[in-house]
């Protein structure tokens, strides 16, 4: 029974990734690529949050700091002349380092104190970057001339597929089991011999690693932006909303959430003018009221 459900999940995941990968072959244009890129970006970022928030129950609102530092480092190393994959890995390791410096101490905080302690970290990072780097991060002309959105999208798709695969593996591993135990009852988990602190640290490292990857992709796709843009607090809040809307602590949930969040918002913005955000808010509330367990709850019923 469980094995069959697993195969079904894998099938759904593989088919949807391949499907997304095929779309640009049939519908041409920058816009389609841009939307699909955003879909991948949000999937990675949401899953990075999902690992910590969905599986382990630790609400981390500092994701913007880890996303931002990933973007900053990746861009810097890439522009310095190293190949992009090297820069991307370096970027996600810079997130890991930040997590060790700031994240691990905050793990001492419990429940919502952790949430808001990490929000504080994100705010500090944002204001510091605004003050220290007030300018615009331009892509140099040499890199701009061979700018190709198709390659950028497929890079993001590969990273997204790897992320989903990683989360799938975590979901079915002993690590995942320990994380869920900590989420459900920290004291009971500790009593059954789970080293809570150790698992929390591992979870945080994994989570920030993927956040850094997402940040690196942001730096890869966008031509020029103010240095502080990837540090904006929306990069903390958006993944939370996406994961909750889709279904926390699942592999498929954040995918559905990202699809809903990115595409629905876009459709509203294109077709409704100034009222688009208002209507989106109404629809958002209706979804939460009717599907309190997230969009994934439809299937479970």
């Amino acid at each position: 029974m469980k094995a069959r459900r697993d195969i079904k999940t894998i099938l759904i995941l593989v088919i949807s990734i391949v499907f997304v990968g095929l779309i640009p072959l049939f519908i041409k244009g920058e816009y389609v690529l841009n939307m699909l890129f955003l879909l991948c970006l949000y999937t990675i970022l949401s899953h990075s949050w999902n690992i910590m928030g969905g599986y382990c129950g630790q609400i981390n609102l500092g994701q913007a700091a880890f996303f931002g530092i990933g973007a900053l480092t990746t861009r810097y190393i890439w522009v310095a002349g190293y190949p992009f994959p090297v820069a991307l890995i370096a970027g996600s390791f810079s997130s890991l380092i930040l997590a060790c410096l700031i994240g691990i101490p905050t793990l001492r905080l419990r429940a919502h104190y952790f949430a808001i302690g990490t929000l504080g970290v994100a705010m500090i990072a944002l204001i510091t970057i605004q003050n220290a780097l007030p300018g615009v991060d331009f892509l140099p002309a040499s890199l701009m001339s061979d700018y190709n959105p198709t390659i950028r999208f497929y890079t993001a798709l590969i990273v997204a597929a790897l992320t989903i695969f990683a989360v799938y593996c975590i979901n079915n591993s002993r690590l995942g089991l320990a994380m869920k135990c900590i989420r459900d009852d920290e004291e009971a988990a500790s009593a059954t011999g789970i080293n809570v602190v150790r698992y929390k640290i591992i979870t945080l490292m994994l989570s920030t690693f993927f956040a850094g990857l997402a940040g690196g992709l942001f730096a890869y796709y966008y031509v020029s932006y103010y240095y502080y843009v990837p540090f904006e607090l929306m990069w903390s809040f958006d993944p939370v909303l996406i994961v909750f809307i889709g279904g926390a602590g699942t592999v498929v949930g954040p995918l559905i959430g990202a699809l809903c969040y990115v595409i629905l918002k876009e459709i509203f913005a294109i077709s409704m003018g100034q009222v688009n955000v208002l209507i989106f808010g109404v629809v958002f509330i209706l979804i939460v009221l009717f599907l309190p367990k997230g969009l994934i709850g439809i299937k479970k019923r």
Binding site: K28, G29, E30, Y31, V32, L33, N34, M35, L38, Y222, V223, Y225, Y226, V229, M234, E266, A269, I270, G273, Q274, N276, V277
Partner: peptide
Amino acid sequence: LDDESDPVKTTARLDKLYS
């Protein structure tokens, strides 16, 4: 088009207008 004062959306929607 509206961009919700978010530069990421500005880029996306200008790409839409272009392509």
